[in-house]
């Protein structure tokens, strides 16, 4: 261990800073959670106090359950997020493998072209995207969202994954070739397991913006049966009255699935299995 790191003062300072950051980051979540269990009056009178026996109320959750098809929205969000992540990782890693592994004419240009999207926000193209979706009849389907989110996530995925795949030892891939593995098997069995931490990073980066997005669901799939959770929750926010109990309850429930997905991915981040492969 590094001597500077074991110094108790700097260790305490470091932990202090991290704990402070954690508290700041968790505070809004905490406020949402406690208030979702309170009566409307209690929310406004003492927003920071914990629910007591007087102020405790499940009214928000009841409203959410009654109004609208909350479980359907939930399911839609889940389908869109998981499917988009799946396609981003699938196509992103395949493109990254080709770019990093094979020398072909236009390799560099292709890489730049695929990375271009990092610099250009996809929302600039909203009108064109809407026209395309109308033309292909995909408006008000979950596919419209999945396709857009996949396109939105791919540039960064290709960029990050190809950087990581370049670091996978050439000898390892060649050993696979000598052992008779096909290029697909080398990709799936050797390279992908080794860049799993990078893939988890890409997944985490993409997951939250997709889950939270309001823009594309509102424009491309506002129909009742394709509403996502974020869009569905908007019914409780009125121009004049907002049903805060319901909004807070909906948000509390919306946190849960992302949390679960995050835990799944972050375990991949920690697991380092590359050591010992090559000296």
């Amino acid at each position: 261990m590094n001597k500077a790191r074991t110094n108790p003062v700097s260790a305490a300072a470091m932990h202090g800073a991290l704990i402070l950051y954690t508290l700041i980051a968790l505070f809004p979540v905490f406020v949402i959670l406690i208030n979702s269990f309170k009566t409307r009056k209690a929310i406004f009178r003492e927003p920071l106090s914990l629910p007591s026996s007087d102020s405790f109320s499940m009214i928000g959750y009841e409203t959410v359950m009654k109004q609208g098809d909350f479980f359907l929205y939930f399911q839609n969000s889940m389908i869109v997020t998981v499917a988009s992540l799946f396609f981003i990782l699938l196509f992103g890693s395949m493109a990254a493998f080709a770019l990093s592994e094979y020398r072909f004419k236009g390799n560099l240009v292709m890489g730049l072209y695929l990375a271009l999207g990092i610099m250009i926000p996809i929302r600039i193209g909203t009108v064109a995207i809407l026209e395309m979706m109308v033309a292909t009849g995909l408006v008000n389907t979950l596919w419209s969202l999945i396709l857009v989110y996949t396109a939105q996530g791919l540039p960064l995925a290709v960029f990050i994954l190809s950087e990581f795949m370049r670091q996978v030892s050439d000898d390892l891939k060649d050993a696979g070739r000598v052992d008779g593995l096909s290029e697909y098997t080398i990709f799936a069995r050797i390279v992908v397991p080794l860049v799993r931490p990078a893939m988890a990073t890409v997944a985490v980066f993409n997951m939250i913006p997709i889950w939270n997005d309001l823009w594309f669901p509102l424009i491309l799939a506002p129909a009742e049966e394709t509403k996502t959770l974020t869009l569905g929750s908007q019914v409780f926010i009125g121009q004049f009255v907002t049903d805060w109990n319901a909004v807070l309850s909906a948000l509390s429930m919306a946190i849960l699935p992302v949390l679960i997905l995050y835990v799944i991915f972050s375990r991949q981040l920690i697991r380092g299995i590359t050591s010992g492969a090559v000296k």
């Binding site: 030892s169 060649d174 696979g176 000598v178």
Partner: peptide, 20 residues
């Protein structure tokens, strides 16, 4: 002929063992 069909086996300088 692809490497796997040449009847050869190779030991690499970096060992190149499959880590998983």
């Amino acid at each position: 002929v692809p490497p796997s069909k040449r009847g050869i086996a190779m030991v690499f300088q970096s060992y190149a063992l499959y880590p998983h």
